[in-house]
Design a binder for these strands. Structure first.
Length: 658
DNA sequence: GCCAGGTCATTTTA
DNA sequence: CTAAAATGACCTGG
């Protein structure tokens, strides 16, 4: 199973890159499970305060004695230093903070506009990740770090959208969220290593370079080659070896043979004020050269440019371990020397990049989808086809049902309320607090520009079909399924749902379509219907929103993100339904449901919409938590929930559901 | 309207 | 401390 490349890396004597110095005096006991250099966590009584973003703090030794008194929150019209001279007062004994505890901007404050309409500041915070966990991660931790990063990034993007485009405060939410996570210790696998990275799985996808930094897959925020310096076996000399590369070029050859990669070395690029030049055998190039001679394999991340329905997306796919086979120099486009490295994927690894080339060939019709029963089980009702596939046994389809994209309400489910569509023009502006639709969402636009849900909330209010804003970005769940989905036969759980397209965290998947039923009638007739969604069941709460270091004026108390509906909603998809009826249960799901409502003709329409919890690679089964009905009995004094045995097979499986 | 290519503002690490 | 980097968002011109 394990290739011998793993053994090779084990022999290496890897020098730790950094030593963790104790943050607290030895007498001062930190809680056992938490420690976050440079500042957090703080013993009781501390209330560390500094705005996110300033990486300068990293270099400073925290001055604990100074932090003994509670720093005050800066007042609204806080002091903004207008020149650089103030900062020059900063010394190690006086960290880069102004008297109100705010860290002063490092970049030229003269140039930078600081229109802080919203108070962005930090609050007491612990990453909850121990030093040991930060050194070596695991799956749970990696998932958690990525989710926290993206939740923060989405929130920052939302704030950015709400500002005037000219006055934007955060041009790169990915960088801001990334550096915040870095400085807060929301990261793992900080120790560089060749070979596999604990908790990161081959086939995992990423949407930003920073995501790979935070989980220790690839440290540099921009550079394509990551490497570390090791001591030679017997000699004193040190030399670099490569640990991972990000390959962003996609060539025709990749499609033909996805296991072979010809990688171009770094450097020599023409720049604004630099001419193209020969690449030199230094840094990453040298590391790859040394790795070749040592027979050291490297991790490979494939960067892909995808054309989605509306816009381009760049995605990174972790494709596992590659061996470096040869290196040579050739003349590049500008006629300068370029290093080339030929890498071949190590055998016996789960598919990563190959899945993408395979799907690409299905989409373009270059090769047929194996096990295909129906090219589109919706018969054109959805704007994107949904394949029906069975690669497992001979069953040729699920039992008959009528495909519908929406919920059919009986009259009793229409709430009569005063209609209040918005008066916005072509589309609602995210920062427009006059818009009643935005106001219903607490003044926040629920989605980012590319239709990603920013945060879970008890209810999401979308603009209604009767709002005049035709191109409004808040009608995400009304626009139907955008992903290329397939219904497939699972090994032990009947039919399931998965996607050919990558799905990013917060992306809309589908609504739960079917017939809305009256709660009182349902209880008698349908005891255990496989195709019923019931909002009154008990759902395990979970935290998806994450705003560490981000405090709004009024965000002092935490708002629940759990669903809350004005009335129970029960939808049966037994006879009428959409793709959602095929989504299976998991105790560790990758999809969650979110109540969504909008008004039309004076009536309130309630919907159950599904969104991705985390990034989901193609061909990964989509699952959500079915929740449990109220306890059905007790066994050995323990309540028994549900009757169905759960086959989700995840670490935290509760054993049953339903 | 699409894209290729340029520009700009940022970050981490060696 | 400074330089380097196959970034990512945005803008322009064909």
């Amino acid at each position: 199973m394990e290739g011998n490349y793993i053994d090779k890396t084990r022999v290496l004597d890897i020098k730790p890159l950094r030593t963790l110095r104790p943050i607290f005096p030895s007498g001062n006991q930190a809680p056992p499970f938490v420690c976050a250099p440079p500042f957090g966590p703080f013993p009781a009584g501390f209330s560390p305060f500094y705005p996110f973003g300033s990486s300068q703090v990293n270099e400073q030794t925290p001055d604990l004695s100074q932090a003994q008194h509670q720093p005050q929150l800066p007042p609204q019209g806080q002091h903004q230093p207008q020149n650089l001279s103030e900062r020059s007062l900063a010394t190690p004994s006086r960290p880069l903070r102004s008297s109100n505890g705010d860290i002063e901007p490092v970049e030229s404050t003269l140039k930078r506009k600081t229109p802080k309409k919203r108070q962005l500041s930090t609050v007491n915070f612990e990453s909850g990740i121990s030093v040991a966990e930060r050194d070596n991660g695991n799956r749970e931790l990696v998932t958690s770090v990525l989710m926290r990063f993206d939740a923060l990034r989405r929130r920052l993007a939302q704030l950015e959208d709400a500002e005037d485009a000219v006055n934007g405060i955060i041009k790169r939410p990915d960088l801001k969220a990334g550096s915040t996570c870095m400085s807060r210790g929301v990261r793992t696998n900080t120790k560089k290593r060749p070979g596999l990275v604990p908790g990161v799985e081959i086939g995992d996808i990423f949407f930003f370079r920073f995501e790979m930094c935070l989980v220790g897959l690839h440290s540099p925020s921009m550079a394509g080659i990551d490497y570390l310096v090791i001591k030679g076996g017997d000699a004193e000399e040190e030399e670099p070896i490569a640990t991972s590369i990000v390959s962003s070029a996609y060539t025709e050859n990749d499609r033909v043979n996805p296991d072979v990669l010809v990688y171009t070395g770094q450097g020599g690029h023409a720049d604004k004020d630099k001419e193209a030049s020969d690449q030199k055998l230094e840094r990453g190039n040298l590391a790859l050269e040394k790795s070749l001679h040592r027979n050291n394999a490297v991790r490979v991340i494939r960067g892909l440019n995808l054309k989605e329905a509306t816009h381009r997306v760049k995605i990174y796919v972790y494709d596992g371990i590659y061996e470096i086979k040869e290196a040579w120099i050739e003349k590049g486009k500008s006629g300068h020397d370029t290093f080339k490295y030929k890498l071949v994927r190590a055998p016996n690894q789960p598919p990563g990049f190959a899945t993408w080339t395979e799907i690409q060939s299905w989409k373009t019709g270059k090769s047929p989808r194996r096990g295909l029963i129906l090219p589109d089980l919706t018969s054109g009702v959805e704007s994107v086809a949904v394949s029906l596939v069975n690669e497992v046994d001979s069953e040729n389809g699920p039992s008959y049902f009528t495909y519908s994209t929406t919920v059919k309400y009986s009259m009793s489910f229409q709430l009569t309320q005063p209609s209040s569509g918005c008066g916005c023009g072509n589309k609602c502006k995210p920062g427009n607090l006059e818009c009643p639709c935005i106001r219903k969402n607490g003044g926040e636009f629920p989605y980012t520009g590319n239709d990603i849900l920013v945060s879970r909330r008890p209810m999401v209010y979308e603009c209604s079909p009767s709002c005049p804003c035709l191109t409004c970005k808040s009608k995400v769940t009304q626009m139907g399924v955008k992903l290329r989905l397939e219904v497939f036969k699972t090994v032990d759980r009947g039919w399931g749902l998965r996607s050919w397209d990558p799905i990013r965290a917060g992306a809309f998947i589908c609504v739960y379509a079917g017939e809305a039923r009256d709660k009182s009638k349902v209880q008698q007739t349908m005891a255990n219907d496989d195709f019923t969604f019931d909002t009154t069941r008990v759902y395990t709460p979970f935290k998806w929103n994450y705003e560490a270091g981000l405090a709004d004026e009024d965000a002092s108390e935490e708002v629940s993100e759990e669903p809350q509906l004005p009335l129970p909603l029960i939808i049966s998809a037994k006879n009428i339904g959409n793709v959602a009826r095929f989504m299976n249960h998991s105790c560790s799901p990758n999809v969650f449901w979110q109540p969504v409502s909008y008004e039309n003709n004076g009536q309130l329409y309630l919907h159950v919409a599904f969104f991705a919890i985390s990034h989901i690679p193609p061909k990964t089964e989509l699952t959500y938590d079915y929740g449990v009905s109220r306890p059905t009995g007790a066994q050995n004094g323990n309540p028994v929930y549900g009757k169905k045995r759960c086959f989700c097979g995840t670490q935290y499986c509760r054993g049953s559901f339903g």
